[in-house]
Design a protein around this nucleic acid. Structure first.
Length: 330
DNA sequence: AATTGTATCAACCGCAAATGG
DNA sequence: TCCATTTGCGGTTGATACAAT
């Protein structure tokens, strides 16, 4: 028996707020306050929303004096200094920046400021480091299409360029549903009755998995190096030609894995998120070394080191005690 | 102009802490 | 002290906008 939901999910509206909903919530709270109970609030206001959703909408957008848009240099410095001092405690960081919300700061850090900090200190750029395939298979979890994340929250990416598919790359009579069943089936992850083709965007070749009528293995052999949607690899049903060398049964997220083609000794990574995801295309297996640590993916300690060696932030470093003293909790 | 890739950010989710009976 | 409920938080997702090809 799981945890009781905070509201009746079936009768609750989700997704973006309409101007009418915003107006209702804002008017009510300005006149009556929250009443100290967010869960009961939506009913009082006449909104089909979860109480948590109302709270978030009020705190992040509707309450007075919210500041949106460009962060100033001074704000950047405060954010990076506090991050170096206390880590990703966004609500505390937000309490030092009047008008800014924790969500805003978190988004800003994750999408812009972290990259900006790294760009300012190229000496700290991590050198690409190859790791063994085996170590990924034993420790990784799915992170995002094209990368794996290990138990230290470090992600690894395929070093040979971009490789993604969306459901419209599936050919023939396959649908995104069949793609998902391909990725999600954990024990026999290739359904022998389903034929799935994927396009390798690096050279426009196609590769094929499964299918009752097994195609003869063919390879891409065009003279100009482009395969133009020819089938370049065929994985026969029930692993005739390929081995599943990573996946759910190897402690990898069930939607991700690594295939090895026994004939060519090449490897391919796949991962999936909902109706889209990625496949890596085939890559030579080089003594078991395949993936590189993502040079953009820093851990907390490295970010702290980066910030503390960066002049732009040196004047703003706090110690933990002082930070605590200055924080006001509401 | 169409397609594909990438960045952004609002909103959701699950968990832990806080609260109160 | 216990337990149920609510609140707050941080991580993550997914729709959309924008950029690149």
């Amino acid at each position: 028996m799981g945890r009781a939901p905070c509201c009746d999910k079936a009768n609750v509206k989700k997704g973006p707020w309409s101007p009418e909903e915003d107006a209702k919530l804002k008017d009510y709270i300005e006149q009556h306050g929250t009443g100290g109970n967010w869960i009961a609030l939506p009913q009082k206001v006449g909104l089909k929303r979860c109480g948590k959703s109302c709270r978030l909408r009020w705190l992040n957008y509707l309450r007075p004096n919210i500041k949106h848009g460009q962060f100033s240099e001074a704000e950047d410095k405060i954010i990076c200094s506090l991050f170096a001092s206390i880590g990703s405690r966004w609500s505390i960081i937000a309490s030092q920046l009047p008008g800014r919300t924790d969500n805003d700061i978190k988004n800003y850090w994750n999408t812009k400021l972290k990259k900006k900090m790294m760009a300012m200190n190229p000496s700290l750029q991590r050198k690409p480091q190859q790791i063994t395939l085996l170590s990924i298979l034993q420790s990784s979890a799915y992170s995002s299409p094209s990368s794996f994340r290990d138990s230290n929250n470090i992600s690894y990416y395929h070093p040979h360029g971009s490789f993604s598919y969306s459901s419209n790359l599936l050919s023939g009579n396959n649908t995104s549903a069949s793609a998902n069943s391909f990725f999600q089936a954990q024990e026999s992850f290739i359904d022998p009755t389903q034929k799935c083709q994927f396009k390798d965007s690096s050279n426009n070749s196609m590769f094929l998995f499964g299918g009752e009528a097994t195609a003869t293995a063919t390879s891409c052999s065009s003279s100009d190096g482009s395969c133009n949607n020819q089938i370049s690899h065929v994985i026969e049903p029930e692993f005739g030609d390929a081995s599943f060398v990573g996946g759910a049964n190897n402690n990898i997220h069930p939607y991700s894995g690594v295939l090895e083609d026994n004939n060519t000794q090449k490897l391919m990574m796949f991962s999936n998120a909902g109706g889209s995801g990625s496949v890596s295309g085939w890559t030579d297996k080089q003594n078991g070394l395949l993936w590189e640590q993502n040079p953009l993916d820093y851990g907390l300690d490295e970010i702290k080191q980066l910030i503390s060696t960066n002049n732009s932030c040196n004047n703003f470093l706090f110690d933990d005690k002082k930070t605590q003293e200055r924080v006001t909790y509401f």
